[in-house]
């Protein structure tokens, strides 16, 4: 089942000047997020991530296209009871204490006071703010605000959690806590959609990822498939007992060879010549130590996508590794 379904989403903002065309921030964006998965929405600054999330939350209206959350059109007020949201660099009512703040958001979600008290204590514990529960938010650090913001997104136990740059402003410990929290949400069967421009965050915890550049989705799919499909992989062969510099057949196949004493490192540009290279090594009397396929990282894909977005007049269509 699809928890988020976006089809042909376009958002234009008026330029503010007569005769000047509107700025297109989202350009026919389509993606889907399945129930129970962690979906990373990856893109450079200004690519349209926050605008997409604003449309999902109903803060701005789409110029065209359709968006559904939990099977209902975006803007359906009762559905919001099932959605949690943390904006980027959140700013909250700083005159409230952490406890009052969470109670307020719980009440807004329609929760009663009795159920809320226990939930507030539990969440403050989860985000490590029990000691600061009676402190006003104006006295919170940026990291603490981010954590209390996460707590407010989860106060009503939502099925879908939408987080805009949830790791920004956090130290390494805080980032790990947030990652663990997101993984915990998936274990509970929740769906998490989060935007980021930090690639390792995506690689570590996401089931699937979408890469957005200049308002277009350039790639979407599972992280492992996305980094492999359609991208050149290299293969490294380590062997000993031969001097590869003196074997023209291997040199012709390799993109790079390194000889260190009796050990050789042969880098092939892809998996295709692997069998021939191994046969040649055996034929020359060499001993195989290891064969390591070198996969392109999400970072490489990200930069390639950015290059596509910036370098071409028309962008490449979204490529789905999952066929989604």
């Amino acid at each position: 089942m699809e928890t988020i379904r976006i089809e042909g989403l376009t958002k234009q903002f008026p330029s503010g000047w007569p005769g000047r065309p509107p700025a297109t921030v989202l350009d026919g964006l389509s993606l889907s997020v399945r129930q129970g998965e962690i979906y990373g929405f990856l893109g450079p600054n200004g690519s349209g991530k926050t605008t997409t999330i604003k449309v999902l939350i109903g803060l701005i209206r789409a110029t065209s296209g359709s968006v559904e959350l939990l099977g209902k059109p975006v803007g359906d007020v009762p559905t919001r009871r099932r959605i949690g949201f943390l904006p980027e660099s959140p700013y909250f009512y700083d005159y409230l204490t952490a406890e009052e703040f969470l109670m307020f958001y719980g009440h807004l979600a329609g929760m009663d006071r009795a159920g809320l008290a226990g939930r507030v204590s539990r969440l403050l514990e989860v985000v490590g703010l029990v000691e600061a529960r009676t402190r006003q938010l104006r006295k919170f650090s940026k990291g603490m605000l981010q954590r209390v913001g996460l707590a407010q997104a989860l106060i009503h136990d939502p099925e879908l959690v939408i987080l805009d740059e949830p790791m920004s402003g956090l130290d390494p410990i805080g980032r790990k806590q947030v990652r663990d929290l997101i993984l915990g949400l998936r274990d509970q069967g929740k769906t998490v959609f989060f935007s980021t421009h930090i690639i390792p965050d995506v690689e570590m915890i996401c089931d699937r990822v979408g890469v957005i550049v200049k308002g277009k989705l350039l790639a979407t799919g599972r992280v492992d498939e996305l980094v492999n499909q359609g991208h050149t992989q290299s293969v490294e062969i380590a062997c000993q007992g031969i001097s590869v510099e003196r074997i023209p057949a291997i040199q012709a196949m390799a993109s790079r060879v390194v000889q260190r004493g009796s050990q050789s490192l042969i880098v092939l540009p892809g998996p295709a010549p692997l069998e021939s290279a191994l046969a040649e090594i055996r034929k020359q009397g060499g001993t195989l130590i290891s064969v390591t396929p070198h996969k392109s990282s999400l970072e490489e894909l990200f930069f390639q996508s950015q290059g596509q977005g910036q370098g071409q007049g028309s962008l490449a269509p979204a490529r789905s590794a999952m066929g989604a």
Binding site: I57, L59, V77, R80, L86, P87, P90, F92, A109, Q152
Partner: peptide, 14 residues
């Protein structure tokens, strides 16, 4: 201006 409205509008209120 302070964007507190973002989290409020994400709640089930009109």
């Amino acid at each position: 201006e302070r964007r507190t409205v973002y989290t409020i509008m994400a709640r089930p209120i009109r």
